[in-house]
Amino acid sequence: MRPSSVLLLAGGLAITPLMIGCTSSPPLQAPPTPSPAAAKAVDNDYIIGPGDTLEVFVWRNPELSVTVPVRPDGKISTPLVENMVAVGKTPPKLARDMEGVLAEYVRSPKVNIIVTTAASAFSLVKVVGQVAHPQALPYREGMTVLDAILAVGGLGQFASGNRARIVRVQNGQQTTIHVKLAKLVNSGDVSENVPLKPGDVLVVPESIF
């Protein structure tokens, strides 16, 4: 065998293990991302409360990404973050607080928090006054006043539907939104079908005779 052939053969044998090593390397794992259903569970201004379930995603650190409940004491614990207060915070606020703690262990951590189960009192929509069955309803994405009225059995016999109002508290400020429920229910005026938010109180007053 000629020397050049020996060199080519040796070179091929040296390259073969390298190629095998390259092809056998496991693919890089994509960072965890929330499912579409989870991402639409609540708005970013939702106030976290006890009993809620949170999905915590830490970018490029799947071992730190977990699903945790908010404990009765209002705190959560995740890998590297213990007993963090969650109650009273919005998901973005809690994510920033967790990033501050994780920065001691992870370079430039990026945290995303999704409320997958809104079970606290902050997530309820309360319907009170002149309706068939006044009650607190679990909030769901896209919920409107018509959804709430149908869920409680409709307006009561003595309801003054066009004087109904939504009482909403955001950022510590209370606002009132007036809704003409009679026009919505009896005339089908969809412009009165106002979207609801977690924690809203829908008040249906009694007619004044």
Rank of each mutant, 00 (worst) to 15 (best):
A132V: 12
F158Y: 14
L124R: 13
V190R: 15
D43R: 13
R107N: 13
A119Q: 11
V70L: 09
Q173K: 14
A148S: 05
P79V: 05
M84R: 09
V87F: 03
I48C: 04
A10Q: 02
L8F: 09
N44V: 06
L155V: 07
D43Y: 10
K110W: 01
V42Q: 09
Q174I: 09
L181W: 04
I208L: 12
Y46D: 09
T116M: 02
V179T: 07
V101M: 09
L202F: 13
F209W: 06
K126A: 10
S5C: 05
T23R: 02
D43A: 12
P36Y: 08
A118R: 11
N83G: 09
V42H: 02
P36S: 13
A86L: 03
G161W: 06
L9N: 03
A132D: 07
V203C: 05
G11E: 04
L94P: 01
L137R: 11
P91N: 04
L146K: 03
I113Q: 03
S5E: 14
R2G: 05
R168W: 01
Q157V: 08
L196E: 08
S77C: 00
N112Y: 13
S35L: 09
N171T: 05
S24W: 01
G11Y: 00
V87L: 10
K40I: 10
L184P: 03
K180M: 10
Q130E: 15
P26S: 00
K197W: 08
T16Q: 00
R96Q: 11
L9I: 14
E104F: 11
P27Q: 00
D45W: 01
P69E: 12
V185R: 11
T144Y: 04
A38L: 08
M143H: 06
R2L: 08
V131K: 04
Q173A: 14
P62T: 12
I166R: 03
A41P: 00
V66T: 15
P34C: 07
T176G: 02
T16A: 05
G172P: 04
V167G: 01
I15D: 10
L146P: 02
G172S: 02
A95W: 03
I48F: 04
G156Y: 12
V58R: 01
S120F: 00
H178Q: 15
D97I: 07
V58M: 07
D45F: 05
G49D: 08
D52L: 10
L181V: 08
G188T: 08
L137V: 04
T176I: 15
D45V: 11
I20Y: 09
P69G: 06
S160I: 01
A148D: 02
R107L: 09
G74P: 15
A10M: 06
L9Q: 06
A136T: 04
V70F: 05
V81G: 02
N44M: 09
S160P: 05
L124W: 00
V203N: 14
S5A: 14
V87S: 14
D147Q: 09
A121W: 04
V56A: 11
S120P: 03
M98C: 06
P91H: 03
P34M: 14
P26W: 00
P3H: 00
D189A: 10
G156S: 12
A37I: 14
L202N: 02
L202V: 15
P205A: 15
V81Y: 00
L94F: 03
N44L: 13
V203L: 15
P109K: 03
G129C: 11
S35T: 15
A39R: 14
